[in-house]
């Protein structure tokens, strides 16, 4: 086999991944971009309307609510799942408890369970005929008790957020745990012998060492939360009213229930633009933080 030069090797390594990816994701999304400027009525494209779909969507209160709900999901992901993931990975890594393997498994478990199961189980517990509700009705002798938060315009998202926190923290825990292995154990031992506090070890050793991974995870968290669909769809389907609507649900409904490909495509483009903006923001923050560490 003739030896490849550096540039050819580069393309041999890169191209297989790149080509599959371009053909299956980037090409269709450009089709979507084109479609997002078209008007649809009665299952047919009826013409070009420029930014009409975008104007419609951006002035729709249901979309505003969806956007806000996605932002909440993003906040719980970046500020909840990631820190909790780090903490849990660290606790397990330091082996302060017996049976770390068992607990690793338990924390990992939620991501192996599909969202459909989680939603199903959740409802069996908290719905008006659920285990929890029945139990509270029994001990308080208030037969009208239901979990009111589900019907609250302001807080209906809260249960979804809690489940997301539980479900996805494990993802970050696994990533952080694998990366904590890269810090030689002698570093921790030395720090402990020097009498460093655990909080100091976390802020001075663990966080700087993990910072590239934290950045990667933040990107994952942001993109994942702006397109989250499965769990919300299975748990609430956007209800009650539209209190738990999210953008991907809005997209799904306009595309597949109301047959408006133009509007559906415009929503996916909006999601992409928003994510790009937010990720650039995180990248900026990350760059600044790195400078500080150096």
């Amino acid at each position: 086999m003739p030896r490849l030069n550096k540039r050819s090797s580069y393309y041999v390594l890169l191209l297989p991944a790149l080509l599959i990816y371009l053909a299956i994701i980037i090409f269709p999304i450009f089709m979507s971009l084109g479609l997002s400027f078209t008007e649809w009525r009665r299952f047919r494209m009826t013409g070009f309307i420029g930014l009409g779909n975008y104007m419609d969507i951006l002035s729709d209160p249901v979309f505003h609510r969806s956007l806000w709900n996605n932002i909440q999901i993003m906040l719980i992901s970046v500020l909840g799942q990631i820190p909790l993931g780090i903490l849990l990975a660290y606790l397990l890594h330091r082996k302060w408890v017996k049976g770390t393997k068992f607990f690793e498994f338990m924390i990992f478990l939620p991501i192996t369970i599909s969202s459909v199961v989680i939603a199903l189980l959740w409802n069996r517990v908290f719905s008006p005929v659920g285990i929890y509700t029945t139990f509270v009705r029994m001990i308080t002798s208030n037969p009208d008790y239901v979990v009111r938060i589900f019907e609250s315009e302001k807080f209906a998202m809260l249960p979804v957020l809690v489940v997301l926190l539980w479900q996805h923290t494990s993802l970050y825990m696994v990533i952080f745990l694998a990366n904590l292995q890269r810090i030689p154990s002698s570093v921790f031992e030395a720090a402990v012998i020097d009498g460093a506090k655990e909080t100091t070890i976390i802020t001075k050793i663990v966080l700087p060492a993990l910072s590239p991974v934290i950045f990667t995870c933040s990107v994952l968290a942001i993109s994942g939360s702006l397109k989250s669909f499965d769990l919300v769809y299975a748990m609430t389907a956007g209800g009650p009213v539209n209190y738990t609507y999210v953008m991907a649900l809005y997209l799904y409904q306009h595309t597949f229930t109301f047959h408006n490909y133009g509007k559906g495509s415009a929503v996916s483009i909006i999601i992409v633009i928003l994510s790009v903006g937010l990720i650039s923001l995180v990248r900026g923050i990350y760059a600044k933080a790195q400078k500080k560490f150096e």
Partner: peptide, 26 residues
């Protein structure tokens, strides 16, 4: 290579795309 960062950004873009938005073209 300089092109690396372009390709890398292109891949990151894929994180933002939901299956729902490409399923019909696909």
């Amino acid at each position: 290579f300089k092109s690396s960062s372009v390709y890398f950004s292109l891949f990151t873009l894929g994180l933002l795309i939901t299956v729902n938005s490409v399923i019909t073209p696909l």
